[in-house]
Design a protein around this nucleic acid. Sequence first.
DNA 1: GTTAGCATGTAAGGAGTTACATGATTTT
DNA 2: AAAATCATGTAACTCCTTACATGCTAAC
Lengths: 191, 191
Amino acid sequence: MSRRGETIELAVLGLLHEGPLHGYELRKRLNLMLGWGRVLSYGSLYPALKKMLRSRLISEDTSVPAPVTGRPRIVYRVTESGREEFRRQMADVGPTAWEDDTFGIRFSFFSSAPSETRLRVLEGRRTRLEERLARVRGDLARNPKKADRYASELHRHGVESVEREVRWLSDLIKAEREHQEHRTAPGTATP
Amino acid sequence: MSRRGETIELAVLGLLHEGPLHGYELRKRLNLMLGWGRVLSYGSLYPALKKMLRSRLISEDTSVPAPVTGRPRIVYRVTESGREEFRRQMADVGPTAWEDDTFGIRFSFFSSAPSETRLRVLEGRRTRLEERLARVRGDLARNPKKADRYASELHRHGVESVEREVRWLSDLIKAEREHQEHRTAPGTATP
DNA sequence: GTTAGCATGTAAGGAGTTACATGATTTT
DNA sequence: AAAATCATGTAACTCCTTACATGCTAAC
């Protein structure tokens, strides 16, 4: 169910909010952010930047020479339309917001999202993970002949990892709710 | 670094070792095995099966009618050359063996791999994860201005998850070594 | 009667990788 | 003298997804 989607685009938009950057530097930051195994290639980043230029989400500045090699370095900035797009995407609470690839990126920029959106995305993510746990457990119950040591060990570890993430999300949701509650007038909560 | 690679092929080969299966059933098993978010589409499975037919890794049997719909159901079997290929891949100890997508599949079929290979793959995987931890920690040390609550919270959780997986691997490695030691003559271990 | 599950496929397209191409500077 | 880091790109390709196409049976 949908693992696609402009992963890089949102991350670039978010990073450029903190200040202008050139491609090479951008890739390093992106790798830190997407981290955990994914190493983005230039063949993927540069075409993505060109595409974003064409759709006016960012603008380029070729006039800055690189300090180390004399070569012209291309510095990118978010445009106003890019800022709008970023805001729009960060306020989105559709299913794509809590899928594996996108969740991490959105979470990284959570400070830029309204508290209400944060809560919805966290809850959506938790529900998705709980659905997976339910599915795996159901399949396991219907298919109890699995005797292989390694296959079941992998399963056990997988389930535990997901359960751990669910607990992590629950803590964050709780904190987010408490934060919301002392912003709204106490005693005026929806009954 | 390389997340591609015939992920499905190895999994299909492994599953068919346990007995012949048709596409629809194969997809269900595959989804359980790759689990955790990945839901394989038919548009991905059927062409892969055709390709494997062409390269003679599997053979088809069209003569079996489906019990539920009367429609002809296509049952696949591993060929001898498929078994060879599976053995070859399961004995492989190159870097692809411990990358994210492939590691899980190889691990699932670890019973079919020689104990030596298991040990190498587990150690390779652990080393890979430790390299990632080192890289992330290094980047963090060089870049200490990260003050954003959410970004650093995500990082913390990521590091903890990877550390957990490293501990899991260490336990498995230990068990695998003990298993090897009581197979080789005791007291003859390499000094 | 309509939803869910069984069952197999194709065509178009997206997102990203690998490999190639180039070249300067700094560190080992 | 070699390797690493800086810096930007293109072309070909791969793997996989989405959407489409078809039709039957069982359960609600």
